[in-house]
Design a protein around this nucleic acid. Structure first.
Lengths: 189, 189
DNA sequence: CCAGTTTGCCTAAAACCTTTAGGCAAATGC
DNA sequence: GCATTTGCCTAAAGGTTTTAGGCAAACTGG
């Protein structure tokens, strides 16, 4: 009975990898046990239940995505920052579709408040500092950017733009461009 | 052994109702059988499998949503049409969250091509006729509108805007307003 | 270094979901 | 009214979740 060395962290990471391979909703405690070649029940010493596994993966993905976005945005401002933010977001979703799906898991309020989700909101607001928006416009803009990015990426992942011209990349650039113009128009004089 | 009168249509409708009550991913063949007070295996005379049930609910929801949007948009043009489209979309998602989630199910290409999804795309293009966009801008705009609406509604359903000011309704109006301005700016002279 | 405790993975088992196979009775058609 | 079709049933196998209890490996301190 060799000990494999399971920990919540290793399980979370393996779960994230599994999500990218087979889809987030195919991530089960059973599948994870198979991957470590241990019996299913063994995982329940490290995880309260299946929901905790999914939540952990979600939190992990949120952190990772926030790190990437922070990196991408560092040292940029204005449209440059907006484009970097947008690309970091989209690239992450395309590289890690399962983790991205995980990041969209609905968290209970306390968990969400303690998650990297707040960093996302902060970074979005940081981007908007380049556009001189005052409240409540700034909040509206935060919500709009979140909607467009999430909406686009999730439609793209679902294959919505696959078999039609023009290329998805072109639409993405057009949209970022349009959003920049929109935000500049909304700036308070 | 009383016959309940199961049909694929009745099962689909009941499945849609169930989705709104407990969430689309909680819709199972078992739960549906309980609702009709018949044994689970009985449903398999009317449905090939669980996936077919979900696909049917998705197609049903797409039709229903397309009907609503068509109704809302009829006789309107320009920003009026845009707002009517947006509201019909958002209202449907809020009234029928389970069906809305179903409508976002990934369909295989042939099924998607035969679905009301194509009506959605046509209606979006119809809205854009009021803005004098030429290709490829029109396609970019179709994709952007789809992204914003879907993204916003799905973040809203996930509770993203619940416990913060300003009201979601205000942000929605601001966004529709902004999109209208954006599209007018993009019009070809 | 080795007893004692902790920890990790195991077996066993119950509950629920999916799906298939085969049966009996109700509805339909001639 | 009888034969056929159809609809719902029982039975059963296989997968996932979760809990309970056991044995052995890995730490702990004397």
């Amino acid at each position: 009975m060799v000990r494999v060395g399971l920990t919540p962290e290793r399980l979370t990471l393996a779960g994230a990898e599994l999500a990218d391979e087979v889809g987030f909703d195919q991530v089960t405690v059973s599948a994870l046990a198979r991957r470590f070649d241990v019996k299913v029940a063994s995982l329940y010493s490290h995880l309260k239940n299946s929901h905790e596994l999914k939540t952990r993966i979600a939190l992990f993905a949120l952190e990772e995505l926030a790190d990437r976005v922070a990196d991408a945005v560092a040292g940029r401002a204005g449209k440059d920052a907006l484009a970097a933010f947008a690309d970091a977001y989209r690239d992450y979703a395309r590289e890690h579709p399962g983790r991205y799906a995980a990041a969209r898991l609905r968290l209970d309020p306390e968990t969400a408040a303690a998650s990297a989700g707040v960093r996302h909101a902060q970074m979005t607001r940081a981007i908007l500092r380049g556009y001189d928006l005052t409240e409540p416009d700034q909040t509206h803009a935060v919500r709009m950017l979140g909607s467009v990015f999430h909406g686009y990426v999730s439609l793209e992942l679902a294959g919505g733009f696959e078999h039609s011209a023009p290329d998805s990349q072109e639409s993405w650039a057009w949209i970022v461009d349009s959003l920049d113009a929109l935000l500049r128009n909304r700036a308070t004089p």
